[in-house]
Write a protein that binds this DNA or RNA. Structure first.
Lengths: 221, 221
DNA sequence: GTACGGTCTGTTGCATACATGAAACGAGAG
DNA sequence: CTCTCGTTTCATGTATGCAACAGACCGTAC
């Protein structure tokens, strides 16, 4: 193979590309991921592809049925419930931890985020607000300053394909305004360093967003 | 969307054996895990060994330095703090969820466990009590009836190599008795279906056990 | 003694060939 | 038509060879 050697590990490129494809939905749920097909597509041999799939399996994004094939994971209804339960748990804990840390950089970014959120809601700019919602939750997690928590959280969100779901949730009438109000309360409690309440309210916020999501999803499910 | 399929392939044997070796400490922290050495030892080729190591990496048990080698992960002080933070969080949530479920099978097993624990403490049988402590925490997690929570929890405990640590913790004078008392309270709150309090007390219990552990590890800290 | 540079060894990264099992398929019997 | 069972096909599972890179080692110049 006189291929002008790709710089950097080929496998890592394969992994991130595959992951992105699954999260964004470019690879349909339940679809077969053939090793040879992927290998040809990425211009590498089966070996790095196999290792990438293996990693995606432990991340819960694909299911490997031995001797049969690798398939894009299809979360069941129960999986969704469990994932949201975990989301509630981790984000609640993050709110508490952040509150305990005091006025760190992430808190200031949250203030700016909430400010921008107000503007987006007032302007009824749903796409912009969806972005800000994601940033809000992300800041909370990062601000908790616990790399394990962050890692597990990201794994969960990937399984949820949350970046797609958030739009559905915000599509419910009045949800954006309500969501933004809840963000306000969480931020205030973080600023007041009231970890207990911040955690409680954050959990309620997650439950509310889940309800809105399921309400928007129900027809199709 | 299930966790690692328990098939009978050689690779799964390699993985579980390696994992066990790391968790139990048979493979020293920081030690180099040579692919060829492991392959020869297990009587397989490098390929399944490589894939096993890859999986252990995403579980956080080994660190792969590209083109250099694979090493048994050595948790830093900060890692330990973060891991305990997560332990507190997950076990607390599990207590809450179990309390909400009512009188399920795991609750009955917990009652029996606490009863046995009383006997072990009274008899000053430390080894037996260490077993029971692990079972207690395990029942709690399983009883939460959330497979994601359980999976993440097990990953974390593997990283902590908790099965080794628990003995250190219980070695502190009076810790066993105190621990058993705390188990009692948690169980009572679960029986009373008081999820809020169960979570709170469980968190305190985890923090207390962490303090006992650190005191036993480094008397100076 | 120290700094420098080249070589050398050990390790992983990737490609490829072969082994093996699962599921689809189709011919034939009933 | 339907069921059975052997065959065929196609996917993954594993072994192995070669290449490339990191780091140790050693001789040499100063």
């Amino acid at each position: 193979m006189e291929r002008p050697a790709a710089n950097g590990s080929r496998q890592s490129r394969v992994i991130s590309e595959m992951r992105q494809r699954i999260i964004t939905g470019a690879a349909a749920s339940g679809a077969l991921l053939s090793e040879v097909a992927l290998a040809e597509e990425f211009g590498v041999s089966r070996t790095p592809v196999r290792e990438a799939l293996k990693q995606l399996q432990t991340e819960g994004l694909v299911e490997i049925r031995p001797r049969v094939g690798t398939f894009v994971a299809a979360p069941s209804r129960r999986d969704l419930t469990e994932l949201f339960e975990m989301k509630e748990l981790l984000e609640g804990a993050a709110a508490r931890l952040l509150a305990q840390r005091g006025r760190v950089r992430e808190v200031e970014l949250l203030e700016e985020n909430v400010h921008q959120g107000d503007l987006a809601v007032r302007a009824d700019d749903r796409a912009r607000y969806a972005e800000l919602v994601q940033e809000f939750h992300d800041l909370l997690i990062v601000g908790a300053d616990n790399t394990k928590l962050e890692a597990h959280y990201r794994t969960l969100m990937n399984q949820l394909a949350y970046s797609r779901l958030v739009h559905t949730s915000l599509g419910q009438p009045g949800r954006a305004l309500q969501s933004e109000r809840e963000h306000h309360v969480v931020l205030e409690l973080v600023l007041a360093k009231d970890g207990d309440s911040a955690e409680r309210v954050m959990r309620e916020h997650v439950r509310a967003s889940r309800r809105a999501l399921l309400a928007g999803l129900e027809p199709g499910l």
